[in-house]
Amino acid sequence: MHILIPDEIRHIFTLETVLVLARILVVLLVSVLLVKLVAFVTVQLFKKRFSQQSLMILKKAITYSGVTIIWMIVLAQLGLNLAALLGAAGIAGIAVGFAAQTSISNVISGMFLISEKSFAVGDVIRVGGFSGVVLTIDLLSVKIRTFDNQYIRLPNETLIKSEVTNVTRFPIRRLNVEFVVRYGTDLPRLKEVLLGVARGNASCLDEPEPLFVVNNFGRLGVEMLFGIWFVKEDFLVVKNSIMQGIHAGLHEAGMEFAVPPAVQLEGPG
């Protein structure tokens, strides 16, 4: 039985065309595998020496460059004039650029974010009302995981315009505990008690030394600031233990926090 194939299609699917298509398929398969292999080997080679952030950029740079080269090879195999195509792409680019201003702005902001290195993958950042761990820094957005396990996508443009706090940029941090003690409290003794609390806490660092500051004479009492240094990973442990330690230390020393007097509300009659 003969299948009738229209002449137009018969002319397209000549032996030569089929060979070109097969060649393109082979080129695509081999080159995609090669790009993936190069990206994988490079990441493995520099895994111990580069940060997670640098590895991510390196991997993306290899992948994007590889994909661009593959497309150029494929187009050349198809017999397309690359110079003419690039010229057309330039004109099309202007048109697309007007239509995709936000995306392009995000891409450019992303490049600034990456080059500025204000934060990296794995850092804890605070931006707007959100705090969380940076998961990825992509061309269009930054993805963070909040501490209550939500996934948030922040457009790069927003980040460039906002105030971003990198909480874990430096290896050590200071926890500032502010509280008010009653007037008449023995302040040198209070300092001893607080320093003792810090010394007894295994997560507090001896050096830099804890900070003891009489902040102000307030309406309720003497306003104090006690700052202790710790390794950034210990934040929660230190916060919980030092607060409990200060509370217990003051209680043992017979000292009291200054609290506002209770307001008594009396109803009519």
């Binding site: 290896p171 050590i172 295994a202 660092l205 001896d206 050096e207 830099p208 240094w229 390794v231």
Partner: peptide
């Protein structure tokens, strides 16, 4: 042993004191 930081607050290493 107590722990302390050796270096600046921006760069250094965790040590024993």
């Amino acid at each position: 042993l107590h722990r302390r930081w050796f270096g600046s607050s921006m760069q250094g290493s965790l040590c024993y004191s």
